[in-house]
Design a protein around this nucleic acid. Structure first.
Lengths: 103, 103
DNA sequence: TCAATATGTGAACACTTGCTCACTTATTAA
DNA sequence: TTAATAAGTGAGCAAGTGTTCACATATTGA
């Protein structure tokens, strides 16, 4: 009997997985995400100081992370406090750090 | 006492994490990786048939995955059998699929 | 109302990326 | 040795991406 090749995950699921990884696959965005799960909640200015990228560039990247539902924010006066939208993201990133440290 | 902002993970570690996610953040490469953990081991021709991308494009992507130590291969005659280099990758991808399914 | 502070937006541009095309290398069978 | 099969490589190019610059919006305090 011939070996049957499997392709269990649908094209669409895998495309979404790729989209998710692509968003985390940028140095500025992963630094923002890391800063957020280290600190819980940060305003834009705190993020700018922690990740050492221009304020404008941070704004653009925050939008991408927000559109992909990786982060969201709470508004307080003229400030916006961003936080991770889902604890899964932290688990995935930490697991990846563990994985890479074994190389 | 002022809140102290944390940035625990080094710039370099986070850069490597971003590099890793960037490699998985492409539809062709994630399809290859998925096909490999569904099937254990595949020759290039099997991969071409499963992911529905040209043979040449698959070759280019296999090289990127190999360079990043995500896959490796066993040579048998004129064929090369590729497989995942580390079980962590499967765990990370499956965890991500679970995460996305909760959205 | 006016100025200051906090954040966001859109266009432009250099840089990167993934594909195709033409060609090459390696192995096996005739 | 020749032809066929399996796989890889490098150049070229269209499409995508991340940053900067100039400008816009929103909120607060004087």
């Amino acid at each position: 009997m011939d070996k049957v090749l499997k392709n269990d995950h649908s094209e669409e699921t895998l495309f979404e997985v790729a989209e998710f990884f692509k968003v985390l696959g940028d140095p500025t965005r992963i630094k923002i995400v890391s800063a957020l799960f280290e600190n819980g909640e940060l305003c834009v200015n705190d993020i700018v100081n922690l990740v050492d990228v221009s304020r404008t560039a941070v704004s653009h990247q925050l939008r991408i992370l927000k559109d992909k539902r990786i982060i969201s924010y709470r508004k307080d006066g003229q400030m916006k406090f961003y936080h991770l939208d889902d604890a899964h993201v932290e688990v995935i990133v930490l697991l990846t750090i563990t994985h890479l440290s074994h190389h």
